[in-house]
Design a protein around this nucleic acid. Structure first.
Lengths: 335, 335
DNA sequence: TACAGTTACGGACCGCGTAAGCATA
DNA sequence: TATGCTTACGCGGTCCGTAACTGTA
């Protein structure tokens, strides 16, 4: 049994049991992979795949177990390499992030700009998707970091670092009757057609629940994954928008008004997660600090270390987290 | 980086940074190890050991981290091999157990006899020592199972399966005044010189504590690790023995009387532990079932599986565990 | 006919063991 | 002088890539 053989094995599993594809992925020859797989099965004395003719048809139960452990070995091997790269002052590497639209569009650009200036040689990969898609990326070890809001239960085995919290805001066209309302309530809101994020993920279904608790049935006329689209339809007068505050940019003030919905819906928390046991290179830790300033390198390292033993909980006070808000004072007036 | 290199690295660390010793342990040549270590350090770009002249002097911080992960990789590799051996119906293997004197002398012989009949080809290793020594064996991955009483906090990262509980008994020579006492109390006991196990391990210090709670200072005139020695000194009239009930064998009735100490001291639990993430081969699971019949293969497998995710707790009711006692009715009279 | 995997073969590489060299106590 | 690591070198194995072969849609 060699690391090479385990790498090949995992590659086969990741290539849909297609040895040729695995060979291409690994920039090597197909017969080489075939042979090593055969050798491994011989040494272990177990069939890892069932064959249909010559092709691989399915993974055997034994194979599933072996592959799972092979993955762990490959991860640890990767960890050793990362660890060594970092300690030897290597400036190259990759940072791969899976995140949702809201973060990718409204929060990450500034952070990434700063990061690229500081670490120009680091290859940055950003994968945007739903929470479920991000969870898959995490499970497949395709991303280093997951950044999302709510829905933590989708991410078992991740070290979760709360980054910031926010209250949804209400978006209406300037001059909309709601702008005259002193204190917004759910019944008032429910009397308007609503435009908001797609329900389903835990974070957003809490919105539905808030209405339900007061016996209200909101009239949601349009849902999207994307605040830009929501804003477009709000501008068209199709309904009242409920979005993340980060999505309200200063230029939106020209035609859109943002009303506070604080207290109407539960406050949500955006977090950053990484795989327990993964080695955090210096630039990764620094990225986290750029993303959430209270997560200093020391705090992050501490959390990573604790997580190898127990569940990270109560490392710091979540209630004391910075509260994220949208554009409050227009830049033009301040200047 | 190869599995071979990591194996060498771990061997060096386990041989006190002596490459020659590591080579002997692995039945290979010393220059080979040297070369592979050099190659590994080159590839990683990190010094894993500090040198003093040509000899290895100490492990660098980087080395410590790399070695820890290398150990994990070696364990997983071993797991894969075990897994495969088991599934391919391999009847050979090794079962290595670290345990205390009480278990090794009074409980395990019967279990091992049965096990050897059932699995004659399995190589059985028994290492007897104090809880601390067993914990070291576990940490060094030298044993598959640890069997001990109390002192669980010495064994982090182990899946602990409670096996049975017991109350200490009081041993005195036949005709001793205490045999006439109706209900034994701590003050009465404290008025006699005592002979018991070495204090220090958590299990035994609970004994001292029981006395202290009633403001008593027991007069312990002799301590040993070994019930046989304790019995010898009790026979000599040196004092009153406090031992595990399993140590009172039927032949001891000839000259020793066992008095119940139930209620005087806290009831203790003997458990069996194995490393989280370790692959349990069929014969290992069967051994556990032989050792504690309520730990059926199904229960053990379930516990092992759960342990990969969370702490095993409340899997079954500890209060319902079988209560272990010593020789109650003499075989001769019953026959 | 394409596609996927196995078998066969030659070359390069690499890891191992022996033997000799060198530093340290 | 003994111990322990490094360097040098030859051998054997092995891994890889190319090429030809075989079984399947």
């Amino acid at each position: 049994m060699t690391l090479q053989q385990l790498k090949y094995l995992v590659a086969i599993a990741d290539s849909g049991l297609n040895i040729t594809a695995a060979a291409e992925r690994l920039y090597t020859s197909q017969p080489g992979i075939s042979k090593q797989l055969k050798l491994l099965e011989q040494e272990l004395g177990v069939q890892l795949f069932t064959r249909k003719g010559k092709s691989l048809a399915a993974i055997t139960p034994a194979g599933r177990d072996v592959i799972a452990r092979a993955r762990r070995i490959m991860r640890e091997a990767e960890n050793i390499r990362n660890l060594a790269s970092d300690l030897s002052g290597e400036q190259e590497g990759t940072l791969s992030i899976g995140t949702t639209h809201t973060q990718a569009r409204h929060v990450l650009p500034d952070v990434i700009k700063e990061f690229r200036e500081r670490y120009p040689k680091i290859n940055l990969e950003l994968h945007q998707g739903t929470s479920e898609q991000i969870a898959e990326l995490v499970a497949a070890n395709r991303v280093d970091f997951a950044i999302a809001t709510g829905s933590r239960q989708l991410f078992p085995g991740l070290v979760i670092l709360p980054c910031f919290r926010w209250d949804r805001i209400i978006l209406v066209p300037n001059g909309h009757p709601l702008t005259a309302v002193k204190s917004l309530t759910l019944p008032v809101l429910a009397s308007y057609p609503l435009v908001t994020y797609v329900f389903g993920t835990t974070g957003e279904s809490s919105l539905k629940k808030a209405f339900a608790e007061q016996g209200l049935e909101p009239n949601v006329v349009f849902t999207a994954r994307d605040a830009d689209i929501i804003k477009t339809y709000v501008r068209m007068g199709m309904g009242v928008g409920i979005v993340a505050p980060m999505a309200y940019e200063c230029q939106d003030r020209k035609d859109l008004a943002a009303l506070s919905a604080e207290g109407l819906f539960p406050r949500v928390t955006t977090w950053l997660g990484f795989r327990r046991d993964s080695v955090l290179r210096r630039y990764m830790v620094d990225f986290i600090a750029m993303f959430a300033s209270h997560l200093s390198p020391q705090v992050t390292r501490k959390a990573a270390q604790l997580a190898t033993q127990v569940e990270v909980d109560g490392l710091f006070d979540e209630a004391a987290l910075p509260l994220k808000v949208g554009c409050e004072a227009p830049e033009s007036e301040a200047a």
